[in-house]
Amino acid sequence: MKEIISNLNKNFESRVRMGIMSVLMVNDYVDFNTLKELLDITDGNLSSHISALEKNNLIKVTKQFIGKKPNTRYEATNQGRKAFKEHLDYLDRLLKSQKEQ
């Protein structure tokens, strides 16, 4: 039991980070505003979580211009996908083991 919990990835502890990762798992890329609307959080909150994920190489940030408007897209790195999948598997096992008790 202890061992399972220690395997939980600290990077995904917050609900916002889990949310960002789940959206990026099923989309090739997503821009800032779409993420903001989906997760229903403020700009500041979202960008602080994004930079934390980026710092750990879990997501990739691409800045570009559409016309004159700056547009930032996010995508999950392979490392991020793998880590998030493992995280979900652990959660799954955790729930199952608790069910058995």
Binding site: S22, N27, T34, L38, L39, L88, L94, Q98
Partner: peptide, 21 residues
């Protein structure tokens, strides 16, 4: 703990569907 994680999993499922379909 358990209900919180379950809720998280449900939210993940919901977000994945809402953002991709």
């Amino acid at each position: 703990m358990k209900s919180e994680q379950l809720e998280n999993l449900n939210e993940i499922r919901n977000l994945m569907e809402k953002s991709s379909r």
